[in-house]
């Protein structure tokens, strides 16, 4: 029984998170074939590079669904193409990446097949029922669960499964034209509004993030945080308490319901370390906490800490940085 993986492409290749999904799919397949689904408008082609990359990650056949609606993102159309392919392949499982879009498409597949969906899994074992380990609370908690019914539907949590190569030669490519109703094609991206806040460093991509919480004391209290972030070419972040107080825009919020960051260093000043916040900064390579309270929960997740008042410590760091640059 094969495993079908819905892959997401990016310009010139396969999205890294789809490769991670393939790694988990292989543990489910236990040697059975891995089939991949990609979608494309007929005017476009899926490059040979994509088939080669997928082959290196264990895919035997790449099924390319061609339809005009795939010129832009159309979640129900992708789901219907997957359902049609699954009717043909009868896979033991259908797997997607735990991206916003992967979770959306798999939920549509689950609704169409009237089957359960386990979102954001980090481990999975086939069987009846299948057993999965999945994220709850944005990863602050894990759940072991049984998934009843076949095929098993799941998505793979980002950055928690390693995308390993499993060479199977270049994947064969088979094209098909899915039968899509008008309703299947109704929901699709029809326009793109470009970001008008361009110029600054985006929080999600910043190499350095300097943040503060209610400990900043006021909206003006973020002046010293902005100063240090500027000096380091980084972005400013904040806790949910700060956006709820209206001190900073929601786009600055780091956390489970805000932005997930992955900087080289995260400097968290006056941030206690609530689970809601920590779910957003797990991807940081290094965490430096500045906190008056040596017992603050964030110290259990931080690599380094300065015990002290951020209003004194942060300006001192900025001054020391300037001094170091002059010499």
């Amino acid at each position: 029984m094969s495993v079908l993986v819905v892959v997401e492409r990016e310009p010139g290749g396969v999205d890294e998170l789809s490769l991670q999904a393939l790694a988990l799919a292989r543990t489910l397949a236990q040697g059975a074939s891995i089939e991949a689904l990609a979608v494309t408008p007929p005017s476009d082609t899926v490059s040979q590079g994509v088939a080669a990359t997928l082959g290196e990650h264990g895919v035997s056949t790449l099924h390319v669904a061609e339809h005009a609606v795939f010129g832009s993102y159309a979640p129900t159309a992708v789901a219907q193409a997957a359902v049609e392919l699954a009717e043909r392949l009868q896979p033991a499982a259908i797997v997607g990446a735990g991206t916003e879009r992967g979770n959306e498409v798999l939920a549509h597949i689950a609704a169409r097949l009237d089957l359960p969906l386990a979102a954001n899994c980090i481990a999975a074992a086939s069987g009846d029922p299948a057993r999965v380990t999945r994220l709850r609370w944005g990863g602050s908690l894990l759940e072991e669960a049984d998934v009843h019914g076949a095929p098993t539907l799941l998505t793979v949590a980002p950055h928690l499964v390693t995308a390993e190569r499993a060479p199977a030669g270049e994947a064969a490519v088979e094209h098909f034209a899915p039968t899509l109703s008008e309703a299947d094609q109704l929901v699709r991206v029809t326009d793109r509004a470009e970001d008008d806040t361009a110029g600054g460093v985006s929080l999600a991509d910043a190499k350095v993030v300097v943040s503060s919480g209610r400990g900043a004391g006021s909206p003006e209290g973020f002046g010293i945080i902005e100063e240090l972030a500027d000096l380091l070419g980084g972005a400013v972040g904040c806790s949910r308490a700060v956006t709820m107080a209206g001190w900073r825009p929601h786009t600055d919020q780091v956390g489970q319901t805000g932005t997930k960051i992955a900087p080289d260093i995260y400097i968290a000043c006056g941030i206690s370390g609530a689970t809601q916040h920590m779910a957003g900064c797990k991807g940081a390579k290094t965490i430096l906490a500045v906190n008056t309270d040596p017992q603050a929960p964030i110290l259990a997740s931080a690599d380094y800490a300065v015990i002290g008042d951020l209003h004194e410590v942060v300006p001192a760091i900025s001054a020391e940085l300037r001094k170091a640059r002059q010499t």
């Binding site: 430096l288 931080a302 300006p315 001192a316 760091i317 001054a319 020391e320």
Partner: peptide
């Protein structure tokens, strides 16, 4: 769970941070 390395206390820790 990590054991955070304490770089220092108050503004005096700034050189260690840099």
């Amino acid at each position: 769970r990590k054991e955070a390395e304490i770089l220092g206390h108050g503004p005096d820790a700034a050189p260690k941070v840099v």
